[in-house]
């Protein structure tokens, strides 16, 4: 446990988490406010529609990408800054370091998810009340949107650590992960929804309530799928890290 504490101390003693949290909150606020203000009268898309309200309550779905980047920088950044040397000097059993980091950034992702969901819910309830529009989404679905995007953010924090361990070049890892999430997976998910729902982003978007056309999974299958990705990437990262010469 002292390793998890050390990882969280590392996180708290640089400004990265602060910058990411502030931009994530700003992005969520902005998206929510734009939806509230500019939702027009197009049937099926007006503010009183389930579609618009699902967008509002699901605005926290962004948090998983931030958690992913945070996790990648936490691991690959140690190679970039050279801090990996003191890290492994202090604790030479490297697999434990990577696993502790995974746990720590699962927590960090969870925190990002909670903050974002609170902001999204605040904007949604506040915005709907201000415009005098009734909440039409069932409470159960609202909770699963907020909870799902929070859970996805937690798991993506762990995935980020795994990716960073597999690809220790921080810039390559961040760019590759974002391209994969924002370009490759949406394309696959659109054209092959049957298979795409088992991808990380596919399962995560189902979990946070924004599934693509057609295919879907129950939330617990999506959680298991995502957890499987977490485990695979983290263990792959552990194997690479154990073997690596730190020069």
């Amino acid at each position: 446990m002292h390793l998890v504490a050390a990882e969280l101390l590392k996180l708290r003693t640089t400004r990265l988490w602060w910058a990411l949290t502030v931009s994530l909150v700003a992005l969520t606020l902005l998206g929510g406010i734009l939806t509230v203000v500019f939702s027009g009268d197009v049937p099926g898309f007006e503010l009183s529609s389930e579609f618009a309200q699902r967008n509002l309550f699901g605005a926290g779905g962004n948090s998983r990408l931030f958690a992913l980047v945070l996790g990648i920088i936490a691991m690959a950044g140690e190679y970039r800054q050279g801090t990996i040397t003191p890290t492994f000097l202090a604790h030479p059993r490297r697999s434990e370091v990577v696993l502790a980091k995974g746990l720590a950034y699962g927590c960090a992702g969870l925190a990002l998810g909670v903050v974002t969901s609170v902001v999204a819910a605040g904007v949604a309830y506040g915005g709907l009340a201000l415009r005098g529009v009734d909440v039409v989404l069932p409470t159960g679905e609202i909770l699963s949107l907020l909870g799902g995007s929070t859970g996805a953010a937690a798991l993506f924090g762990v995935i980020g650590v795994g990716v960073g361990a597999l690809v220790p070049n921080q810039i390559v890892a961040v760019v590759a992960a974002l391209v994969e999430q924002l370009v490759v997976e949406p394309l696959l998910f659109n054209f092959f929804p049957e298979q795409g729902r088992f991808l990380m982003g596919g399962a995560a978007s189902i979990l946070s309530g924004a599934p693509g056309p057609g295919a879907t999974l129950s939330w617990w299958v999506a959680t298991v799928v995502l957890a499987g990705w977490c485990a695979a990437l983290l263990l792959g990262g552990v194997a690479i890290t154990e073997r690596k010469d730190v020069t």
Binding site: H2, L3, A5, A6, L9, K10, T13, T14, R15, L16, G77, Q81, G82, T83, T85, P86, T87, L89, A90, H91
Partner: peptide
């Protein structure tokens, strides 16, 4: 070589080293 995070203070670097090595 650079074994420190440029954005972390010296005292915090030592706190991290202390935490990781108990």
């Amino acid at each position: 070589g650079a074994n420190f995070h440029p954005g972390r203070t010296a005292a915090n670097h030592l706190r991290v080293v202390a935490a990781a090595g108990r």
